[in-house]
């Protein structure tokens, strides 16, 4: 199956098991939002897929290739951390083409890719700008451009709206959704914020105590929550709607 396929995954830190029996799939063009209270294992799951944490059990397949024990750099996964993780000593174009630079791609080719990607995220003319002088939204777009420049097979975003102010949040969410639509890859987002989840994805997976308690289309889960806890967790959705 094309896309991401996670089978019976168990992972955690040292001897502590944080996530257990995790199985799910995300196909190209699908967006899955991982939701759950703090400490439910969302970030652990994201970091295990990314390769930062080694799983204790289970398998991860990306486009039918097993990546469970591949080093991070060999997975070809686009990743946007919560604070965007931009490199302060590099300017915008150097940040965006970093992944191509470490792959030994020529300067000319890097500049061509950067030009296309910066147009996609509407940052033309920002090539030589210093990171420190950018606004929060611009920084996020540089982070997106940088992750997309490597043509990833999967895109992981950690709390993508948490550093965006309330006024522009819905606009940024719209831009992100448009961008996701243009990409032919699976996308996984993580949030603990109900409003962000509402803005960004129709498919959600609810993690509680390291297990996926319910997964599916958001509106159906709201209608038929599996447990009273999920019903309580999704209450803000029903109020918003």
């Amino acid at each position: 199956m094309k896309g991401l396929n996670v089978i019976d995954l168990e992972s955690g830190y040292d001897k502590n098991l944080v996530i257990r029996n995790i199985s799910f799939s995300v196909r190209p063009k699908e967006t899955l939002m991982l939701m759950g209270p703090s400490g439910s294992g969302k970030s652990t799951l994201l970091l295990t897929i990314l390769g930062i944490i080694t799983p204790k059990k289970g398998k991860i397949f990306l486009n039918e290739e097993e990546i469970t024990h591949l080093p991070i750099e060999a997975r070809n996964i686009g990743y946007l951390p919560q604070d965007y993780g931009l490199f302060p000593h590099l300017n915008v174009i150097e940040n965006v083409t970093y992944g191509l630079y470490v792959r030994g791609i020529s300067k000319k080719e890097r500049e061509d890719v950067a030009s296309k990607i910066l147009t996609l995220v509407e940052l033309q003319g920002f090539e030589k700008r210093r990171i420190q002088g950018l606004s929060g939204g611009q920084k996020q777009r540089v982070g997106l451009a940088r992750a997309l420049a490597i043509k990833p097979s999967l895109f992981l975003l950690d709390e993508p709206l948490s550093n965006i102010d309330q006024v522009t949040k819905s606009d940024v969410a719209k831009e992100l959704k448009n961008l996701f639509y243009k990409l032919n890859i699976p996308i996984i987002l993580v949030t603990h914020n109900h409003e962000d989840a509402l803005l960004l994805s129709k498919d959600i997976a609810i993690l509680i105590d390291g297990k996926i308690e319910q997964i599916g289309i958001r509106d159906e889960i709201i209608k038929n929550p599996k447990t009273p806890f999920i019903k309580k967790l999704l209450l803000p959705f029903t109020i918003n709607e």
Binding site: L50, G51, I52, P71, I72, E73, R75, N76, I77, G78, Y79, P81, D83, G85, F87, P88, H89, Y98, G99, Y101, V102, R103, R146, A147, I150
Partner: peptide, 26 residues
């Protein structure tokens, strides 16, 4: 602590490249 080294690796840099392109210049 910033996690920049891991972001660099997710972009395809091996630990040696991360050392010379992230840790040393910063």
């Amino acid at each position: 602590q910033t996690g920049m080294n891991l972001t660099a690796r997710s972009l395809g840099a091996n630990p040696f490249q991360v050392f010379f392109t992230i840790f040393i210049p910063l």
